[in-house]
Nucleic acid binder design. Structure first.
Lengths: 347, 347
DNA sequence: TTGAAAGCGCTAACAT
DNA sequence: ATGTTAGCGCTTTCAA
């Protein structure tokens, strides 16, 4: 049964029924204080009875703004983005804004296409996460179009953003691993060119190792962001200077690594330490719980939204780096044989 | 630096520059075959050069439809909904539709408010998941408003939906547990009143146990959908007829249960079997991998979108129940001491 | 094959 | 305190 469209009354119809002009009805909804209480009450009654609601499309066309923001993320499959989304959506809704969504799947052409669709819909601004803000066609297009935007998770010298300090956070995590007695540390990530965050985290890890006089951090790049390849993992572990700790650039990747280590009959943390980055909630449910760097994803979304709305209001508040937190789960514990420099591995 | 808005050319301006009427420019974009190739080319050149793109708000107002659909889900924190979202979004985008999003957090008042906002934006239709479709105010409002909609995950006798057969799926899972030697099975869920799916799954589980002559399935209801309470779990396990298998109504809940069992020093699957429902991808990364009922979440979203678009096109295809699949992970294995009634636990 | 004109629903500027 | 009017950008008859 295709629903029969019940007539949606327009402002004109309400005006007639209430015996006033359309402008007055408009005022009843937008500046009710301008109306005589009596008039307002009458209009409200009629509107209520007829089920009238102002048509946002008409209003948008007239006003030149839609009170809608865009949200463009690589995926929602990674909880880090899902959380960010929820934070942004909630903030937007509370402020009377609606959210139009796009998922890019890390694909630049989808990114371009989706952003264009959002612009065509006349969104007032958008929040997005890109691979690398330094050389991103979409960001240039947004600048060219004068479309206000805020980056989430990305750090940029030229565009407003909300993130954590990825470099400092990774630096701290490596310091933590070192304190646990680890010296041979590998950083596992997806393709660096597709993630400025992973790159910054690697830099932070490397810097810390350098400063502490540890051996250089080995970098292992997987083909995917959140899935590890068993062969390359095996190869790394077969080296004479195999790492005692694997620092993964995100939690899903860490989970994948741990699963594959299990398949290789390596126990975490007894045989090798593993930690992640993000602090997704599922990590706390793992057994043992995942050691990681927690970033406040919901708040990143909420703050990004706040920043965007401020810009829409004419303000231009600065970018924000929110605090992170090292989570000592159970997947990275003290090395069994804390022999800093000498290499000795048994059992 | 608040961006300076670069003038966005309207159809009128393009018309002037191309020396044609606005109607002709409109045709160039909507029915190009009507135009003389020469004219079309000229218009396209001018449009290209000026960066013109048709304003969707103007078009929507005129056309009476927005080519935008709504998507209203309880949360994106549960990957089952995130996957569904991605499936729906991708399908919508491919069909030239945009997606406006709302997250309800399982809160009926947020649900009502969000749906109203979506209706105000003149969405053409929406996809949603509700707690219980049988008595849901939002669904009644949608019917009253003549707003086309399709349920995802919910099963309903009165509204179009896309889901799996929850009852049959749970039935199968219990049969699988029974085949592994389990007879005392408990079903763990969140509040049943807030989830028709959990209720159907429980019914399926109970029916199967009855048919197989097993003891009645114990039902343990937690306060939250995806978080188990340690005390009630402990109490259940202290009973003389404690279950040997826990069937959780979703994967996140199963993960939570497993984590709490670990805290109680119970090993899964050696001491007790646990399985979930959903088949979220993180489950496969758990160690051991989670035994569960997999539902095709992405496809549920995609099909729900297809069904909705068909309805918008005047068709009224029937609801769909997509196939599920029992996943034999490592968290539910054969009972160690297959002594149905006696209780004996060692090591 | 193209143009002229009306109007979708709303609001802001300008009356009164 | 309320009404009149014009027009946001677009498409779609109807006419030429």
């Amino acid at each position: 049964m295709p629903d029969k469209l019940p007539h949606r009354p327009s402002i004109l119809e309400i005006a007639r029924k209430a015996g006033v002009s359309p402008a007055t009805v408009s005022r009843a909804f937008n500046q009710p204080e301008l109306l005589r209480p009596e008039t307002r009450a009458r209009i409200e009654a009629v509107a209520q009875r007829s089920g009238f609601r102002p048509n946002r499309v008409g209003r948008s066309l007239r006003a030149g703004r839609t009170r809608t923001i865009g949200l463009l993320l690589p995926t929602l499959t990674n909880p880090v983005f899902a959380d960010c989304f929820e934070g942004a959506e909630q903030h937007a809704r509370a402020a009377g804004y609606s959210v139009m969504m796009g998922i890019t799947g890390y694909d630049p052409s989808v990114e371009a296409e989706s952003v264009q669709a959002l612009i065509d819909h006349q969104i007032d601004g958008l929040i997005l996460t890109v691979g690398n803000p330094a050389r991103n066609a979409t960001l240039r297009a947004l600048d060219a179009a004068g479309m206000p935007h805020v980056l989430a998770y990305n750090e940029s010298g030229t565009h407003p953003f909300v993130s954590v300090d990825n470099r400092a956070a990774a630096h701290e995590m490596v310091a933590r691993l070192a304190a646990l007695g680890h010296s041979r540390i590998a950083f596992v990530s997806g393709p660096l060119t597709a993630s400025d965050r992973a790159r910054r985290r690697l830099q932070g890890a490397q810097a810390c190792a350098r400063e502490l006089g540890l051996p250089a951090v080995t970098h292992l790049a997987m083909a995917a962001h959140t899935e590890s390849s068993s062969p390359s993992l095996r190869k790394l572990l077969a080296r004479s200077d195999a790492p005692t700790a694997l620092f993964c650039s995100n939690d899903l990747l860490a989970a994948s690594v741990i699963a594959q280590l299990a398949a290789l009959r390596m126990r975490v943390p007894d045989d090798i330490a593993v930690c992640g980055f993000d602090g997704v909630s599922i990590g706390a449910l793992m057994v043992p719980p995942l050691s990681t760097v927690q970033q406040p994803s919901r708040e990143i979304g909420a703050r990004a939204c706040a920043l965007l709305l401020a810009r829409l209001g004419g303000d231009a508040p600065a970018s924000v780096r929110l605090p992170h937190r090292i989570v000592d789960g159970g997947t990275a514990t003290a090395v069994a044989h804390p022999v800093p420099s000498t290499r000795k591995r048994s059992s």
